[in-house]
């Protein structure tokens, strides 16, 4: 059963098509990576999945139910959305920000209970932000802030986690940590859709990849099938070193290709 799926969704901004008949499905237990060059429509697709924007065409379903049939609060409890840029208006304490993740679980005048505090604590531990739980969120470094935002999304305890470039501001250690967090979320029966630019992380931590290019799905499937020479060149205009380390695939973007002329084989490390 697909926890969240999009079927033939299209979005147009004015006359310009941003997404054209895109399909995507993430079953429980799956980390689905969304890759593609800037402007390919990744964020738009993620916003559709978060129900922040309606598609011009196509259908979206949560757990088999069309989005339109899912009540607002149920949807908010089931799907957490982590936008690319964290907006933080007031210098709230970090734990207060994380606690906002419990809003969909609380009635209008209900205070957070034991269960909520537990979820907040778990989320803060998972994201490793306990050391600055009481600091003002505006005083954090970019990386610390990114982790605080991830904790906020985890505190929702959603079934589906939608994350837009969650590792962009992080150092390698915390990148791996966040990817492991996403994996664990899937292992516990959730689904994750994550936008990534780091291809090796995409190859290693995602079960499936969807590569978008100019609003269409260019390739879809297991990481090795998607991260091929032709697709990388067509989507990103790059040539990359690809290889395996044990069972794991890695991809190192090597040079930009500007023409379609045949290029020398640089994939010495590969296959």
């Amino acid at each position: 059963m697909n926890l969240i799926e999009a079927e033939g969704v299209s979005v147009r901004l004015g006359r310009r098509p941003v997404l054209e008949r895109v399909d995507l499905a993430a079953p429980a237990g799956c980390v689905l990576g969304l890759i593609g060059p800037n402007g390919a429509g990744k964020t738009t697709l993620l916003r559709l999945l978060a129900r922040l924007h309606p598609p011009d065409e196509g259908a979206l379903r949560l757990d088999g139910r069309p989005f339109g049939e899912v009540p607002r609060r149920v949807f908010a409890r089931s799907v957490a959305y982590l936008p690319q840029l964290a907006v933080l208006q007031w210098p709230l304490a970090v734990e207060r920000v994380v606690a906002l993740g419990r809003l969909p679980h609380l009635g209008p005048w209900q205070r957070p209970g034991r269960r909520d505090l537990e979820a907040i604590q778990n989320a803060m531990e998972a994201a490793d932000i306990g050391a600055f739980a009481t600091r003002a969120v505006t005083t954090l470094s970019d990386g610390e802030r990114a982790r605080a935002m991830i904790a906020r999304a985890l505190a929702v305890e959603p079934r589906v986690l939608l994350a837009d470039e969650p590792v962009a501001a992080l150092d390698p250690g915390h990148q791996l940590q966040v990817m492991a967090l996403l994996r664990r979320h899937a292992q516990k029966g959730g689904a994750v859709v994550v936008v990534l630019h780091e291809l090796t992380l995409a190859a290693r931590f995602c079960d499936r990849l969807v590569m978008l290019h100019e609003g269409r799905v260019l390739a879809e499937g297991a990481p090795q099938e998607v991260l091929r020479e032709e697709t990388l060149e067509e989507a990103f205009h790059i040539r990359a070193h690809r290889g395996r380390f044990g069972d794991e695939t890695f991809v190192i973007p090597w040079e930009r290709v500007t023409t379609n002329a045949a290029a020398p084989d640089i994939n010495g490390a590969g296959k």
Partner: peptide, 19 residues
Amino acid sequence: RALDALSLGEETAESLGVD
């Protein structure tokens, strides 16, 4: 409650169920 959620921006607030 809604104003609290809004301190994380409109999109996040909406994803937290704020109408």
